[in-house]
Write a protein that binds this DNA or RNA. Structure first.
Length: 500
RNA sequence: GUCUCGUUAGCUCAGCUGGUAGAGCACGUCACUUUUAAUGAUGUGGCCGUUGGUUCAAAUCCAACACGGGACACCA
């Protein structure tokens, strides 16, 4: 039963009284002619005037009432629009007969959206305000806002009812404006570099391009299942085959896996592919991209992140094996010997078994001893082949791949490699994945014959990279949960939502 | 999936070793024409997450469940 709350009932009654008094509580139109930010900018000189006011200026601003201080025949209100808060001054004698006593004092309250016209002045306490002579209610809020001082802190309510969070916490609005700007700048950066933005399917007949469990949906007309995409990779590479030489896509991926501070079932990534380039070119491009964001976002190169400080003047590049000893402090004599690694892991009470390959064990060492220590942006290169199923082998060393991952603040941000473009090799790797699938690995790739066929027509040597946009935004916005950079993070339905 | 903490008024939170439910904000009424979380007076407002158990008696103790936070695990 909606609206049964007594406060809501009370406010519905006020809306009714407003209607009866001839004021539509849900107006269709506003005469707002300036934002609060602009108002403050244009009138910053009022301080210096003799009377600290200029009655010849006239502005109409609009916003939501956040504070309402009634002091008898006059009131101070704070109204908020998208970017700022403005104090307005209402006095009985400056408003039409009866408006102040019968309408504003009785029927208007915190949460309502109003429009006010008047002239700028500075109060005794020095605050630039609007001296109101015209008042109009635009929208009546029948639900009361949360407490004015503490606002809303319950994370569950903040995520489920993001609109309330946005009303009450202007910092949250700031974060999402930053998010929008980062995505916009990303688009501009790649366009300026000559990349073409493309859109590839979100519903795939085969869930490919990554190892992950997909969501399944059904196409009624065709009578077949489709998978929400887990990665756009295989489609973007088809476009390189087709002759586009640099493409990128910023969009959602869907993975049917766990949720935590860095995972949401749908997340945004950018993937980009450039023909006639290698992963080494992408290291250069990635550095340039990150510095571009830092500069355009007006962020410091010594970026604070929680307790950490990330130095964007200190890009590090180091091969994985070297990082094990130099950063992970694992003895050099251990890192290339399978049995010694197994013993070492056992000594440190870490799980490992004899079936793991040398490459997998090196990966394990990296995860345990190196990853969390990579605070400044670090490109880890020369990944072992066994843990890089999609990357091209190095021509000079068949055990390693032409690949890097970028880590910042102990977290993986990007993954890139020179792409495998040998169709026969690709076919063989798909076959191996099918074997793995039949052996019970439900995250193994499925065969994508059409992709193999595409490669058979020849794909120019190409380098490709994926960057987790949400995690990058977390870094730049100093947020520590992915939910705080997603407007509507995935939540379990509530009981009432279930019954719907 | 495991561990852990939490769920009390619209919001923010108290409520101790069980004994008829508390505050601030908001809201109602009154006063107040330069306030800054305005102030003063006064009043209304609770399925104490849900279900069960122990007890003469449960917001409080126990169990299960639901939802959430945090950590860990899983996840290229």
């Amino acid at each position: 039963m909606p609206f049964k709350n007594k406060f809501i009932q009370q406010r519905i009654e006020k809306a009714k009284q407003l209607k009866e008094a001839g004021f539509n509580p849900y107006q269709n139109q506003s005469n707002k002619n300036i934002t609060i930010l602009q108002f403050k900018d244009v009138n910053s000189d009022i301080q210096t005037l003799d009377n600290k006011r200029d009655e010849n200026r006239h502005y109409i601003v609009a916003g939501r009432i956040k504070l309402f201080r009634i002091m008898g025949k006059a009131s101070f209100l704070k109204i908020e629009d998208e970017n700022d808060v403005l104090q307005i001054y209402l006095a009985r004698d400056n408003l039409p007969e009866g408006m102040y006593n019968n309408i504003i004092k009785k029927l208007i309250e915190v949460g309502d959206i109003i429009e006010v016209g008047g002239y700028p002045f500075v109060t005794n306490k020095g605050e630039l305000s609007l001296h109101v002579s015209e008042f109009k209610l635009l929208t009546k809020a029948i639900a009361p806002l949360p407490e004015k001082f503490h606002g809303i802190t319950d994370k569950e309510i903040r995520y489920r009812k993001r609109y309330l969070d946005l009303i009450m916490n202007s910092d949250v609005r700031k974060t999402f404006k930053m998010r929008s700007k980062i995505i916009s700048l990303t688009r501009r950066f790649f366009e300026e570099k000559g990349f073409l933005e493309v859109e590839t399917p979100m519903m795939h007949p085969i869930a490919g391009g990554a190892n992950a469990k997909p969501f399944v949906t059904h196409h009624n007309a065709l009578g077949i299942d489709r998978y929400l995409r887990i990665a756009p990779e295989l489609y973007l590479k088809r476009l390189i085959v087709g002759g586009f030489e640099a493409v990128f896509e910023i969009n959602r991926n869907f993975r049917n896996e766990g949720m935590d501070a860095t995972h949401n079932p749908e997340f945004t990534s950018i993937e980009f592919y450039q023909a006639y380039k290698t992963y080494k070119d992408l290291i250069v491009l990635t550095k340039e991209y990150l510095l571009y964001l830092i500069e355009k976002m007006d962020l410091p190169c010594l970026l604070p992140y929680g307790e950490l400080e990330i130095n964007f003047n200190n890009f590090i590049e180091i091969p994985l094996i070297e990082s094990l000893s130099k950063i992970g402090k694992v003895n050099e004599t251990i890192v290339n010997d399978k049995q010694k690694i197994l013993d070492f892991l056992k000594q440190n009470n870490l799980e490992a078994n004899q079936n793991m390959t040398l490459g997998q064990l090196q990966g394990k060492l990296f995860d345990e001893f190196v990853e969390e220590k990579l605070i400044d942006p670090t490109f880890i290169t020369e990944y072992p082949v066994d843990i890089s199923p999609l990357a091209r082998r190095d021509d000079d060393n068949q055990d390693i791949t032409q690949r890097f991952e970028l880590f910042i603040a102990g977290r993986e941000i990007a993954n890139a490699f020179s792409e495998l473009n040998d169709p026969v090799d690709q076919l063989e790797r798909f076959m191996k994945q099918i074997d793995a699938k039949e052996a019970g690995d439900d995250e193994a790739h499925e065969m994508d014959q059409d992709f193999v066929e595409a490669l058979s027509y020849g794909m120019a040597p190409t380098a490709g990279e994926g960057i987790g946009i949400d995690r990058l935004i977390m870094l730049l916005c100093n947020e520590h949960s992915i939910r705080d950079v997603l407007l509507f993070p995935a939540m379990r339905p509530t009981t009432t939502e279930n019954t719907n």
